[in-house]
Design a protein around this nucleic acid. Structure first.
Lengths: 217, 217
DNA sequence: GCCATTCGATACAGACCTGTCTGTTTGACA
DNA sequence: TGTCAAACAGACAGGTCTGTATCGAATGGC
């Protein structure tokens, strides 16, 4: 009609695909993937439904592609921070926790997309759920790398604790004050790090020493 | 037809309601609330659709009622543990983390129902989402009570950290080994507690001392 | 300058979903 | 024994969803 278009058989093909992905990312995140129909996606994206199904096959695959896109975006931000703190693993970890906490504190934040979509599709073999699980494994893997660079005594345990902390921040944000997540994350991580450095004091297995604070009564 | 029934206008009314709730709890948790239609609920529950709508009004209200039921069940288990450790806040906290971690490690565990349903219904005024948020606030409130009984230096901060930890364990279970969650929870909590007891060392605000572990290179 | 491919637009099929309505049965209670 | 509230069974309305089919238009490669 009255649209400015670039090309058809060549570059616009990926432009249309990108437009669909971008629109679906936004709609699925704000309202949930199951609550948003493909008709709404194509309408908001300004494309034809045939284009959506040519590029993605099924809606389930579209959901998976959305998660893959968000996965890429997340690690892109992560890598930028990592490069800015090359050779300084402690500084990098703090910086990673900072932007993660800041993002989770944004007013339009509705939780981690990977976690949300995984909650919407409990079937173990759903393509989107596979992406989400791979994403969380990658998070733990990267945290373990940082822990190893730090010379942690128990890098795998430390990475697991940090992963739990980050995922917990993602879902706890809804009940926190806006700027509470970031400092809480940093502080808890710092505590876990110092504890790893002195395992004899803080992590002697299931039997911990009695709490050393002053009891109320 | 060939069903053994007790009474009608009196006690069966709540029996029918209870049967619907129980069935919906199971189906919603396993497959997601949006993926399960009311027809399936009434079929599996062996009741009439009219009964469902007489008791709950709308499906959204049924979802909220399911979450309220699970909320009650959760605090019921919590209270049992709390009573078993009356006057011993440290022992209670460990015990609470134990059963929570154990539950999250079960093979049929699919995450915290409150978190999952909240992810399925992002609208802020959805009745089920209100229940889920109230549940998470209650969790933090109870943790703060324990922290205060422990004589924590910063009970609110400590409770926030523990809440993040627990919520993180709920969602991280999918990528963990089955029996990893419980010890990880206990250990991380122990570390946070000892850190609270000596805030001068571990939590001096945004500026932490340099990591004291031996760097890799 | 022709042709294959992609695009938009739209109608359609078939299934499913929520919620309502009608009619019948059943058990408690006065 | 008669009344009434609740349950069952099932059809039904109206909407929505995914996915397919059809059509004309535009475009870049050859």
């Amino acid at each position: 009609m009255a649209k400015g278009m670039a090309s058809k058989a060549g570059s616009e093909a990926i432009e249309v695909r990108e437009k669909i992905l971008e629109t679906a990312c936004d709609l699925f995140y704000r309202h949930g993937a199951r609550a948003v129909g493909v008709d709404l996606v194509v309408e908001k994206a300004g494309v034809a439904k045939t284009s959506l199904y040519r590029h993605f096959g099924t809606k389930d695959e579209l959901v998976a592609a959305v998660l893959e896109r968000q996965d890429l975006g997340f690690w892109h931000d992560w890598d930028r921070v990592a490069q800015a703190h090359a050779g300084d693993p402690r500084g990098e970890l703090d910086a990673q926790l900072d932007w993660i906490g800041d993002r989770a504190g944004q007013p339009d934040y509705r939780g981690c997309p990977q976690i949300n979509i995984a909650a919407e599709f409990p079937e173990a073999d759903h393509p989107a759920r596979k992406v989400a699980i791979a994403h969380k494994r990658e998070l733990r893997r990267r945290l373990r790398l940082i822990a190893e660079q730090l010379g942690a005594a128990a890098p795998d345990l430390l990475a697991g604790q940090l992963a739990v902390l980050i995922n917990g921040a993602f879902v706890s944000t809804q009940i926190f004050a806006p700027d509470e997540a970031s400092p809480l994350l940093r502080r808890a991580a710092a505590v876990l790090l110092t504890a790893d450095a002195s395992p004899d004091r803080d992590a002697p297995g299931p039997e911990e020493p009695a709490y050393s604070g002053a009891p109320k009564r």
